[in-house]
Design a protein around this nucleic acid. Structure first.
Lengths: 101, 101
DNA sequence: ACAACACTTGAACAGATGTTCATACGTAAC
DNA sequence: GTTACGTATGAACATCTGTTCAAGTGTTGT
């Protein structure tokens, strides 16, 4: 067995995993998918479309916002979410179109 | 709040999450990264490059093979792993090159 | 001020995932 | 057949993630 000279940049791998983890969940993919189509949606609208409990949705949304994937704007009683990291969108788009699906 | 007419294909979301989950881990990204560079590596060679315990590596490798990401060929005492699902490679490549990194 | 609505928060629990350790298996060399 | 090497397996444990529930915050309208 010969020694390999290859790059294994731990920091980079961890960052990549971090980004991917954030997307690797059906509810979160659903959110991204919807926001890609509609640009901007309130929590209530997302809830309506996804048919999940409000607080669960909120947890996911806040999680994604904290990780820099989404951003929010409050307008009166409503909070609107939209995509911030569009790189994530590309991944979803890629996956959706790939033969692995 | 008006009702949205959007596609939320549960099956599709779950499949996408399944694929992404498989990649969303530093060790597994490391494996894919190495196999992209070298085409084919034995468990021992991967271990040498990644500096992780043998059985942990084996668990990850088998996991990825079971999910259709990798394939194996035994040659004597050695087992060689290589990439099967190249779509996954594209994702890693995309992430690596993106501004989110 | 209070009620109603839209959303957030936190604690508790449940289930999934990652890691370790010890042991087993397959192959080749002797 | 036994030894040595390379790899796989399984059980036990630790940790991380997702979900629920109950209560809290912010905003608007009365």
């Amino acid at each position: 067995m010969t020694t390999l000279k290859v790059r294994v940049d731990q920091k980079r791998l961890e960052r990549a995993a971090y980004v991917l983890k954030c997307v690797a969940h059906p509810v979160r993919i659903g959110i991204i998918d919807l926001l890609e189509q509609k640009q901007r949606l309130s929590v209530g609208e997302l809830q309506e479309a996804l048919k999940i409990e409000q607080s669960l949705l909120s947890h996911h949304l806040i999680n994604m916002r904290d990780k820099g994937v989404l951003q929010t704007q409050r307008e009166g009683k409503h909070v609107y979410y939209s995509l911030l990291d569009t790189g994530i969108v590309q991944i979803i788009r890629y996956i959706s179109g790939s033969k692995t699906m």
